[in-house]
Design a protein around this nucleic acid. Structure first.
Lengths: 237, 237
DNA sequence: GACAAATTAAAACAATTGTTTTAAACATCT
DNA sequence: AGATGTTTAAAACAATTGTTTTAATTTGTC
């Protein structure tokens, strides 16, 4: 009977994978269960047999991809307390960009989240709690390091939105970016370049927002990014 | 007979208005012709009578709203050659933000374009030519003023994307911004505040990108934005 | 091998979509 | 007023969606 549920029927897993692929790519509303089943090589009825509906399948995909995300590819990764602020910023931006622009299962969740931000389903509320708020908190702490104690909550929030906005734009506007700049590459190499720019752009701005004082000199510092770049892929073609 | 086509049946106009409203709000795919007709107080068959299909109705809305946009509310408005670079930047950002965040007929077109950028239909290609490319060219020229002659095409492009990205984020991520910051207002007053921040943020970054030289002092200048603010609504509550 | 449960397959269902048909209502002109 | 062309209204159509039903097949256990 149901003594040992070994291999919860590979069909279920196949559905989960195919659904993750399509949902991350096209979003909830633009995806049909027939498409999912076709890719999974599975009968249509399977989605209602294993999950009870398209919605619950989507929920399953969300929690499953969240598991993958937090366990293996959290944007917090490598950002410790001790790290210098500008490097923490760079790491944050880099991870975010990779997770929304790179293809592949590990990055499904961020794509789902990014879609939800723009085109919500019933899953958004939980995503706000599990993913967006923590991510925002992390970025806020980084921004705070730049702006200092005196910075208002509003300014911090606005700067966070400016940074996130720059990143997500490459995801949201991908169709038109491809047309405007056909040479724009979204390979790993290309994403690194984008990350470098966004970091530099934001760094420059943040440094200027800092209250008047000693940083007048250091804000001019161009070696800030150089220091970040060094040791990664300093010689890129 | 068809000697003088007076008053092309108010129904057609009602359809055009309702369709513009709904398309701008929900995009092409999420809009049903039944919804459009209901709002217009018109029979379903009317859309196929006056326009031949949902697609052609959408096309009509696009060209009609483009007319309104270029004739009355072009983002070029007020940006002349002589104006100071930072004021041109502020004007550009302000107009863009207003046209995607404010409600109302005059701003339909930018909302349609913004939707197309993310979720293309057959209309995107023409929009790229008529709206996006010109707008990009304008912003590029402004950015160039900041970066100077020596700036590479790639840097200019990246900075433009950073600026546009910051603005459109407020449109794209509106559902989640509302949840994260319930106090965020998108009234005219609120939009002005956003425009001020995005301008300042971008200004600071651009100034730092400028090749080394005289601007070391002036980049620190906080009065740049103050000068812009002055004369608009210098005392806001 | 036989029986029971779990899984798969095919077909059908109900709801929604854009579109078309059909006829009624209206307007215009002689 | 009556004929003619234009516009509206109601209903039906075909295609697509998520879901369910029904029966066939496979799997596990004795």
């Amino acid at each position: 009977m149901n003594r040992h549920k070994i291999s919860v029927s590979e069909t279920r897993q196949r559905l989960l994978v195919s659904a993750g692929e399509v949902f991350a790519e096209q979003g909830f509303y633009n995806t049909t269960v027939r498409d999912i089943c076709r890719r999974a090589g599975v009968n249509i009825a399977a989605v209602n047999y294993y999950f009870h509906s398209k919605e619950e399948l989507y929920d399953a995909v969300c929690t499953h991809s969240l598991d993958l995300a937090v366990n293996k590819y959290s944007p917090t990764l490598g950002i410790t307390e001790g790290t210098a602020a500008q490097e923490r910023l760079h790491t944050f931006i880099r991870s975010l960009l990779f997770s929304i622009l790179e293809k592949g299962q590990p990055f499904w969740h961020e794509k789902l989240v990014t879609r939800e931000m723009n085109n919500p389903t019933m899953a958004l509320d939980s995503m706000v709690e599990t993913t967006i708020k923590p991510r925002n908190k992390l970025l806020s702490s980084i921004v705070k390091d730049f702006l200092g104690k005196g910075a208002s909550e509003e300014l911090i929030r606005q700067c966070c939105l400016s940074i996130i906005g720059q990143c997500l734009h490459y995801h949201y506007a991908q169709p038109v970016i491809q047309r405007l700049y056909p040479k724009q590459k979204f390979s790993a190499e290309g994403i690194e370049t984008i990350a470098d720019h966004v970091t530099r752009f934001s760094l420059y701005a943040l440094q200027q927002f800092k209250p008047r004082g000693k940083q007048i000199m250091e804000c001019r510092a161009d070696h800030s990014m150089a220091a970040i770049r060094r040791g990664k892929n300093s010689s890129k073609h």
